[in-house]
């Protein structure tokens, strides 16, 4: 019967050997049956032999010894069972008989056809160009500076291009490291460009929602929700291009990261409203079109809503600190509750 040795070096590179003649000698020297290029392995490290139906392993005078399934072994002969893991130096050797069971076959997961689309060079640079044109168009339509917008247009477009290239570069370097020589730079460019196109369009929609709803909770929720989904999609796509993570883990990582970032942005905004601010913060978004969709109130109804602003709990959140907090005096002499 054959014996199969699966040799894994410290980088998890795997090689399989199959033996029917014994003994099998293992070591760093070139006259071994299995040559292990590991500096912590001795020239003649181990010897595997067959005794009847059983296989045994013995240390042949190694410097660093070895272990079986994590248990250090002395030079005495030890019997092997199929599936045992020998560790010598930084090299692992799994011992299998041919009838050793293997894991179930995993279904081959096909990536979404989008990943095929963004691998095509023509699509990549088209989407990149569209993203830049949309950015330029947005800047050209909306940016107003007192002395003309030439510089602002160039810098906005250049910034958009820079962001896309930077994102693609970071991920393709990461991909090169984890997937070895699969940088997918162009696909990353296309993915980032598509996300930028979507966010530009969404920006118009979002600013109209802000305008028409006066920045109420609904428009806040839409903004946070949309950004979180878009970021999640971008992260999922980038992970797909740059790693071999299983589907479920990619979804989990992308969702966690985007939700985490959105939550921290929300938290930061919420906390900053609790800080003292001399300026009033109010809905100031104005848009030139669709103003007829704005739900108008009568002056009376507006003033009635204003009246409810004076409710006691409106100011609770920032009313805690007292003027003594900023004076050097340790004692607060004001006892207003007792007298009137």
């Amino acid at each position: 019967m054959k014996l199969i040795l699966e040799v894994r070096n410290h980088e998890d590179d795997t090689r399989h050997y199959s033996f029917s003649d014994f003994p099998v000698r293992i070591g760093r020297a070139f006259n071994n049956d299995v040559i292990v290029s590991d500096p912590f392995v001795s020239p003649h490290h181990l010897c595997i032999d067959r005794e009847g139906d059983a296989y045994t392993v013995v240390d042949t005078g190694s410097e660093n010894g070895f272990s079986i399934n994590g248990e250090p072994k002395s030079s005495a002969k030890t019997e092997l069972r199929s599936g045992d893991k020998l560790l010598l130096g930084e090299t692992g050797i799994f011992v299998y008989t041919p009838d050793h069971p293997v894991a179930d076959t995993l279904p081959l997961r096909r990536e979404h056809q989008l990943f095929g689309w963004i691998a095509v060079t023509r699509n990549v640079w088209t989407s990149f160009l569209v993203a830049l044109i949309l950015t330029f168009e947005w800047a050209w339509l909306t940016i107003f500076t007192p002395d003309g917008e030439g510089l602002a247009l160039t810098s906005t477009t250049a910034t958009a291009a820079g962001i896309i290239i930077f994102w693609a570069t970071v991920w393709s370097v990461a991909g090169r490291l984890t997937r070895r020589h699969k940088a997918n730079f162009q696909s990353h460019v296309a993915l980032a460009s598509l996300c930028m196109i979507v966010s530009r369009v969404a920006w118009y929609v979002g600013s109209y929602i802000n305008f028409l709803t006066s920045d109420n909770w609904l428009s806040q929720a839409v903004t946070y929700g949309f950004n979180s989904v878009l970021l999640g999609f971008l992260l999922y796509g980038s992970l797909t291009l740059a790693s071999k993570m299983p589907h479920k883990r990619k979804v989990a990582v992308a969702a966690l990261l985007s939700l985490g970032l959105t939550a921290s942005a929300f938290l930061f905004n919420t906390l900053s409203t609790h800080k003292f601010n001399q300026q009033p913060v109010y809905s100031a978004s104005l848009e030139p079109y669709l103003d007829k969709l704005a739900p108008t109130q009568t002056v009376g109804a507006f003033m009635k809503d204003n009246n409810s602003l004076f409710a006691a709990d409106t100011f609770v959140q920032v009313a805690k600190s007292h003027k003594a907090a900023q004076s050097k005096a340790p004692v607060i002499p004001f006892q207003r509750s007792k007298h009137k």
């Binding site: 109130q297 002056v299 204003n306 602003l309």
Partner: peptide, 25 residues
């Protein structure tokens, strides 16, 4: 800070004097 709270605002739209206005109080 310490003298006053933050501003609390109510924003809306009103139809007044023949125009639409965005208003904040």
């Amino acid at each position: 800070q310490g003298d006053v709270t933050n501003f609390a605002c109510n924003s809306s739209f009103i139809w007044h004097a023949g125009f639409r206005w965005k208003v904040s109080f």
